[in-house]
Simulated scan of single mutants.
Amino acid sequence: MSDNINISSTEPGAPLIRAEGVNLRYGKKTVLDNLSFTIPKGRVVGLLGHNGAGKTTLMKAMVGLANHAGHLDVLGLDPRKQRTELLQSLCYIPDVAILPRWARVHELITLMSGMHPKFSADRSRELLRRTSVGLNDKVKQLSRGMVVQLHLALIAAVDARIMILDEPTLGLDVLSRKAFYELLINEWCDGERTVLISTHQVEEVEALLSDVMMLNDGKLVLNISLDQLDQRYSALSHAPAAANAVAAAHPLLRYGSPNGASTAIFDGAMPSEVEALGQRVRPSLVDLFVALTRAPELNPRASR
């Protein structure tokens, strides 16, 4: 059980989220394994990992729904001991978020107005005008994509500093996912507030992210800004004939492409003799995800 870290979230430069040696076990299974990281203000952080990697558990710990060992401080508060205070400045949409099907949209706005002191009904209605959801619509009459947009409009109308989203677009078609992320980025992110998004649609969110965290079997195998990611990792596209020579340089991952070429990803600068065997390309976040979560032991620096 952790003690609250008495660091004010309003202190200049203080991170909004701070974890130090966070561990969580369910019986004999370690779900979160010694996680340490900080998340500052004004960031859009992608939390990536396979099913069972610990993403949902970590998010639940951040909002006080999962007991853990080690220190975890969100907005300067202990999520378990000060959860009521924390939820006044934090929004959370879990992966199984449900709105009452019998309710009309305007009734949900009224309900939120009475429940949350920092909720703005006017702001919620303004956000809904950017969607196809009507104030008199019943939840049960809405498509899944419209329900997700409604949920975001309700949550984004809370004057919070952190939004935590666990697979918010799961099961939606590509147009609904695009509409959701446009609403989120354009209407909520302002350079001061921070969003933490767990998702499997890595390709779709890469352009939205400022930072990425990757979990594998409860371990943090990557925690880096996308700017630093481009500086740290390199990739080489090469002909099949050079495969053995490239493999001898021990890349993190090698894979083929439909045009017959192969690509290798390296942690750090690749040897000059290897670079001469092909063309340097930018590694995608998807490829790095595969490399670091399929065989993290190949990259002992991954969690730094």
Score class of each variant (00 low, 15 high):
residue 286 V to I: 07
residue 247 A to D: 14
residue 147 V to E: 14
residue 17 I to W: 01
residue 33 D to S: 12
residue 137 D to R: 05
residue 127 L to Y: 12
residue 276 A to Y: 12
residue 21 G to T: 03
residue 236 L to G: 04
residue 130 R to N: 09
residue 71 H to D: 08
residue 234 S to N: 11
residue 69 A to S: 14
residue 2 S to D: 05
residue 193 R to L: 05
residue 137 D to A: 13
residue 58 L to D: 01
residue 211 D to R: 02
residue 139 V to D: 00
residue 7 I to S: 01
residue 251 P to L: 05
residue 141 Q to T: 15
residue 162 I to N: 06
residue 49 G to K: 04
residue 143 S to I: 09
residue 285 L to F: 04
residue 137 D to C: 11
residue 151 H to C: 12
residue 199 T to F: 07
residue 289 F to W: 06
residue 248 A to M: 11
residue 183 L to N: 06
residue 201 Q to D: 14
residue 186 N to P: 00
residue 212 V to Y: 00
residue 157 A to G: 13
residue 184 L to P: 03
residue 138 K to L: 11
residue 159 D to A: 12
residue 84 T to K: 15
residue 126 E to L: 10
residue 33 D to I: 07
residue 125 R to T: 08
residue 143 S to E: 03
residue 48 L to N: 08
residue 25 R to M: 10
residue 148 V to Y: 06
residue 135 L to R: 11
residue 283 P to F: 12
residue 282 R to W: 00
residue 144 R to K: 15
residue 235 A to H: 06
residue 165 L to C: 00
residue 178 K to F: 02
residue 287 D to I: 07
residue 159 D to L: 08
residue 68 H to E: 05
residue 281 V to E: 13
residue 190 D to H: 08
residue 98 I to Y: 15
residue 118 K to L: 10
residue 204 E to H: 01
residue 296 P to L: 08
residue 159 D to T: 07
residue 299 N to Q: 14
